[in-house]
């Protein structure tokens, strides 16, 4: 199973973590490419159904960040 890479669906808040991701990019920091970022206007918008839908569609992990 060496070739397997997890798919992690990440919900990032536009104003917080998404900004941090931007800053990490500007700073040329390296991090694993397994996260698939979904930008959301605010973490308050998150509905449990988002998580369930992601899982149902086969995500290996979920990361929710405000």
């Amino acid at each position: 199973m060496t070739s397997w890479e997890p798919k992690i669906v990440s919900f990032l808040c536009n104003w917080c973590s998404y900004g941090a991701a931007d800053l990490a990019g500007i700073g040329r920091m390296e991090y694993p490419p397994n996260i698939r970022v979904i930008r959301i206007p605010c973490t308050g918008l998150i509905n449990p159904m988002f998580i369930l839908t992601a899982l149902r569609e086969g995500a290996d992990g979920i990361w929710m960040s405000g």
């Binding site: 941090a20 979920i62 990361w63 960040s65 405000g66």
Partner: peptide
């Protein structure tokens, strides 16, 4: 399932 708080 992970949750976190990260400022920009």
């Amino acid at each position: 399932l992970h949750f976190s708080w990260i400022s920009s």
